[in-house]
Design a protein around this nucleic acid. Structure first.
Length: 266
DNA sequence: CGCAGCGCCTGAAGGC
DNA sequence: TGCCTTCAGGCGCTGC
């Protein structure tokens, strides 16, 4: 579930706790998804950045420690080593604290790569602009979406037209822009609305500390508040806030998708 | 190169 | 009560 707003919330909490700290030991679950965590042993963390849903920890030896939280990943910086059965990696820091990665469902991933070299992480390599980036214009989104005839919802989830939207915020942005998720092309005015909606939905979710529906916790173990402000996701059968038509849902590319059949036009 | 399809995971919730 | 099935879904990989 962690999408851009949740990952950004974690990034902001993590950075002051780990920046400047050296990694004095590292361990991981045996799965190849997590064993690269050990490669960061001995390096110093300079800062914590984010691209889309990826956390990028700059190391002082021209490498980056990259963490993707998957569905249920949680990072925290406790004063003792993690003891949950779901600890998938942990790094001991030189101030005695630990950077701990918990992930019940093991959908997360950890990698260490040369700084800026994302060739082996294709989703990150091909990631679209951040919603907040000046390059994320209506024209960009219009062109990017019309390059393919896949459904608009599917394209948003691909991370290529824009970075960081998952199932929750894709449904929210499409609802706000009044765009039909199953459409396979988009007009210029609709692309302009969708661009604005992506920014609005992501920025307000960051302000609300992210959305906690089941598993999401921030780096301090707290919940977000944005679940109280969702207007579409998870509300199938409830009246649309704009037009009172009951929201409908269907599975689009293996993901539950909710939309208003009246005011989200093709 | 684009993309459809599949596998990875396990706790929670629902059905009987 | 307890067993079984279904569901949640981001992304990497395979093969057409």
């Amino acid at each position: 579930m962690p999408e851009l707003p949740e990952v950004e919330t974690i990034r902001a909490q993590l950075d002051p706790l780990v920046a400047g700290r050296s990694i004095v030991s590292a361990s991981s679950h045996p799965s190849a998804k997590f064993t690269p965590a050990i490669e960061a042993h001995g390096a110093q963390i300079e800062q914590v950045r984010r691209r889309g849903k990826y956390l990028l920890l700059d190391l002082d030896d021209q490498r980056e420690l990259i963490v993707h939280l998957g569905m249920t990943g949680v990072l925290s910086v406790p004063e003792q080593a993690g003891d949950s059965p779901y600890v998938r990696a942990q790094w001991e820091l030189d101030d005695g604290r630990w950077l701990v990665f918990n992930d019940v469902r093991r959908f997360g991933r950890i990698r260490v790569v040369p700084a800026g070299d994302y060739a082996s992480i294709t989703t990150l390599r091909d990631l679209g602009p951040e919603p907040s980036d000046a390059a994320f214009t209506a024209q960009h989104l219009h062109r990017a979406l019309n390059k393919s005839s896949r459904r608009l919802k599917t394209q948003l989830l691909s991370q290529r037209p824009v970075a960081g939207l998952g199932n929750i915020y894709a449904d929210e942005a499409l609802w706000l822009a009044q765009v039909r998720p199953t459409a396979r092309s988009i007009s210029k005015p609709a692309a302009a609305r969708l661009r604005d909606a992506c920014i609005e939905v992501i920025e307000s979710a960051i302000s609300n500390g992210g959305t906690t529906l089941r598993d999401y916790r921030n780096a301090e173990g707290g919940s977000g508040n944005n679940q109280f402000y969702l207007r579409c996701y998870g509300r199938a059968g409830e009246p649309c806030e704009r037009c009172t038509t009951p929201l409908r849902s269907m599975v689009v590319d293996a993901r539950t998708t909710t939309w208003c059949p009246t005011c989200q036009k093709r």
